[in-house]
Nucleic acid binder design. Structure first.
Lengths: 242, 242, 242, 242
DNA sequence: AATGAATGAGAATTCATTCAT
DNA sequence: TATGAATGAATTCTCATTCAT
């Protein structure tokens, strides 16, 4: 993967600073004045926790650094001992959410077997993670655009890593002969899966009023595997119920 | 549809002010000091045009009202003759984009016939509209969350109207016996179509590097109608090419 | 009367521009673009009427020229055909109020006779005028300070003219042998009378809750003529009632 | 005293928020971001000092917050650490002036004895305080009207407290048999005294040119106690000089 | 390390005044 | 004469960031 012209959820076309999204990319460093690594970690955790709940409530721009400091339980001066700019907080928050999601997914995708069953299971699991973390997901996708150019590649990288998980899962199925899909088809499929998960969170104002999570999983899986035609026929035959 | 607890792309849980998303809802009025309706329309068009390009570049929050005025080609004082608050600009922008998208869709969905072919055609057309307006789409979905509570129902309503278009299209197919889907399945399907369209714009940083629009349309349609299994089999049989 | 260092209800120490308060001073001209004198007068009357009611409600500074124009029944453009600056409106308003008050007083003080009775009658009449015009009185005294330096002498002059009326009335009594007061005593007395009148308007929040106008007139007159000692004795003797 | 329909020096008729002027009323709190109470006091003192001198010069409305900050010796940002709105400054200024006046009066009225002599002494003292603080008095009475509804009761209350001081002084004389006055007469008298004091400041442009403070005190006292008639007779008899 | 007072650039909004029609 | 759209200087207030204690 080379030079990004990333415009995922981002406004500015990326300039020189923002390039190469390499898998296995190192974390972007956020400078702290305080040396004690353990303390830095603890303070940042407090900070992220406070910030997430504030961002949920009012978004990044409407949240002030003072509020973040207060929510984190320390003073504004202390806040700035652990970050350099307000945007650092946003980066830490996004990074942390990605990590949590990835972690939860990784956990489950550990025992990848390359069967259709395990793929379905993986998808269902992903949807459930999304459901549990919907607030965070919302925050992340809505505010990530406010990250500056140099934080961007790291975030895009995370997105790619997530897609890669599903790609791997699907590829295993292909290798096992359970599926027969081209590279490109795998790519698009994994992105579609990810987006359908996000959909549960983004469109919850309507979806979550119409369906329970499990219904949603079932129906989406049905569509995903059998498509409109398949679903249509199955319904006709009575294989699946309304 | 009743009382919304909308959390679509919005942070604050909606209070009393923001309820009822009624189809056929009247436009929310944005007050102008200037009386000449025609002039108001013209100036607002200038304003929207300028604002969209600024919002694309730097987002709503980072764009100042002075910049908007300048981009629109008039003074800050004049800007405020046509709106009341900065947020009004955002509302006008979102409203305008929705209108354009809807219009473009409506145009095409006029000759709805209730055949699978026409449904496919409608979807393809929608994807193309998205492609043409991707910048605007991006702006709308990323900034709409900054609208205040009282502008919200109008925006949610637009979303519903868009979903309703596809619901109608699909329902026609069902009525014609071309498809056999339950109410709920129609619902979820139309939202999925919409989201897959948005995906082309949201994930363009990766999708548009891998696929041409027509490829994307073809592949998504394939998945949508036949699902993973169908695609998989077709590929095996050589019905479709990689 | 010479060089004023007027600080009546005015903030800035007066510079060169503001001097000589001469009795019989000509009115300060307020320039109009419109030539037709009659029209100018009519429009200004509309303007003053509207402005007074607005100033009553929200004060000079919080009232906008647009509001004044609207209240006057014409457009902002038209307003500026009859004045040069917003402050001109204030001057016209103050001037007009003074004129009304003076006129009402003059009317009554016409038949000055130089008896104590007629002095009492004059005072009572003045109090009644104040009562009738209290809103205007309030406006005038509260906003006059916003007049610029060059409008000031005219206003001070009006104040002097009012004091002069009572001075004349009292002087007549002195000349008639009904009273025996020095120049200075006459001066201070006439100012005191004027201020006691204003008091009815300025302190109405408490006075007008405790007394009717007629009670107030009676009591103030009693004090004015007999003083604390006199009132005290009269009460003791039962000459006056509580 | 209950429900006020105060229109003292105020434009808007008071709504629900502005009621009950209770003696012993607590001070209206002005919120500060800074915690250190002592510092808050010091900074506010600087602020008030600067503001008073600016208000004297150009009035509340024509003074900008930046000017206030500068006059106080700190930045605009710092100013807003100690107040919430510009109006807070006005409230602090008015409050401070009242406090100073009250304090100066209280000091002296401490040794109230209920003799006519001590009453005269109290009045003279009040006039001298007014003289010393005339600039502040002017500012207070001219700008107080710009206070919002919720600051009003506090200010009216102060006015009442001042009147109450004289009422007490007079009442003592009545109780001692030195005077014989009704409740209402006491009321009106104390207000008259207060207003005659203010008169020295409000009409200084003419009074202070004609009289020295001591002359003014003497003459007003004469009138106050003996009235026109008394003064007139005394002059005739040669008891007092011109 | 922690604190929180100080800073000032920057933002939205208002409104007196002008001027072309 | 009358109109009202256009203007932009001026104003209040916010908030990220710094730095002395």
């Amino acid at each position: 993967m080379t030079e990004e012209k990333a415009t995922f959820f981002f406004h500015e076309p990326l300039g020189a600073g923002a390039s190469k999204v390499v898998s296995g990319m190192k974390k972007r460093e956020v400078q702290a004045s305080v040396k004690d690594e353990r303390l830095v970690q603890r303070r940042r955790d407090q900070m992220i926790k406070g910030a997430v709940s504030l961002f949920k409530e009012k978004g990044f721009h409407r949240t002030t650094t003072r509020e973040i400091a207060k929510a984190a339980g320390f003073s504004i001066g202390t806040l700035y001992e652990y970050i350099r700019t307000k945007e650092d907080v946003l980066y830490l928050v996004c990074d942390s959410i990605y990590d949590h999601v990835s972690e939860r997914l990784q956990e489950d995708l550990e025992h990848k077997q390359g069967t259709l069953e395990s793929l379905k299971h993986g998808i269902a699991n992903y949807f459930r993670v999304i459901d549990e973390m919907q607030e965070e997901i919302l925050v992340m996708y809505q505010e990530a655009k406010s990250l500056t150019k140099d934080a961007l590649p790291y975030v895009l990288n995370k997105e790619n890593e997530m897609a890669a998980m599903f790609e791997k899962l699907i590829t295993l199925c292909v290798e096992n002969g359970e599926l027969n899909l081209s590279e490109k088809q795998i790519r698009i499929l994994s992105h579609t899966i990810i987006v359908e998960g996000q959909m549960w969170s983004f469109r919850r104002w309507t979806l979550q009023k119409l369906f329970t999570l499990e219904e949603y999983i079932e129906m989406q899986t049905e569509y995903l595997f059998s498509g409109i035609n398949g679903v249509s026929k199955a319904l006709q035959k009575g294989t699946i119920t309304k």
